[in-house]
């Protein structure tokens, strides 16, 4: 690749491309090339030139650009191979790339369409949320499923509080303790069997050591993953509550 000599004075804008496809699309559009008949050799040179430029400007080159460059060169070399006339029309090695570019282009447009509906939405003014609403009954409608991020937030609050209230943590606390989430799962399950539900923070109220708190949280995550519990929260009363999965169908 003799790049230095092939510099033809193209003024490639050093805009930030989202990825190799973005750059390729830019090149295709900028040089008014027919996308169904990309002159692979030229495009490859321009692509490499851009990478060279990125190097010069000391922009970190994402590995994806290198992969694409290699891919372009592969296509280029395939196209140089002689094609036997009597063979059925060999697949154009560029077909996949063109498909990919078209697909990418489609979603780039979709993204800008989305952006304009976002602009429309900025005219939507809804009522302020902080009014005190009616007393919500304990209905199914008023229980919403808790998202994993909410759970993580609740957990980090818990860890934070615990750090504040018990600052006398000893570093030796956790040494040689055996924490077993499976054991905790069994415990939580038995509470659920008896009571039918349990509050998230209740599960942590007896735990003193950080390691134990983490174990309980792990146990909860395991149970969610195994679909043995559902975690829900009442719109109004806010306590995160664990329910056994089987019951939720009819009771909640």
């Amino acid at each position: 690749m003799d790049n230095k000599n092939s510099y033809t004075g193209y003024n490639i804008k050093t805009q930030n491309f989202e990825g190799p496809l973005d750059l390729l699309l830019f090149l295709v559009r900028n040089y008014e090339i027919n996308i169904y008949d990309i002159p692979i050799s030229e495009i490859t040179d321009q692509f490499l030139e851009y990478i060279g430029l990125m190097k010069k400007l000391d922009i970190e080159i994402a590995s994806e650009f290198i992969v694409m460059a290699a891919h372009l060169m592969l296509i280029k070399s395939r196209m140089m191979l002689p094609v036997e006339e009597d063979l059925e029309v060999e697949d154009d090695p560029r077909v996949d790339l063109v498909q990919q570019l078209l697909e990418y282009q489609k979603f780039k447009e979709a993204a800008s369409t989305l952006d304009s509906s976002f602009a429309v939405n900025s005219e939507v003014l809804e009522r302020k949320a902080d009014q005190i609403l009616l007393d919500f009954p304990d209905d199914e409608d008023n229980w919403v499923e808790v998202k994993i991020f909410d759970l993580i937030n609740a957990f980090s609050r818990l860890i934070g509080e615990e750090g504040k209230t018990k600052p006398t943590f000893s570093v030796f606390d956790d040494i040689e303790e055996d924490y077993d989430p499976e054991e905790k799962i069994r415990q939580i399950q038995s509470v659920l069997d008896i009571k039918g539900k349990v509050l998230f923070h209740e599960l942590f109220s007896f735990e003193v050591r950080r390691g134990e708190i983490i174990t309980v949280f792990l146990a909860i995550l395991h149970m969610i993953k195994r679909l043995s519990i559902v975690v829900k929260q009442h719109k109004m009363f806010g306590d995160i509550t664990l329910f056994p999965k089987s019951v939720t169908g009819d009771k909640l």
């Binding site: 989202e18 990825g19 496809l21 994402a62 994806e64 990919q100 697909e103 979603f107």
Partner: peptide
């Protein structure tokens, strides 16, 4: 998603 965009 990544195969459409070509990036991580």
């Amino acid at each position: 998603i990544e195969s459409v965009r070509g990036v991580s």
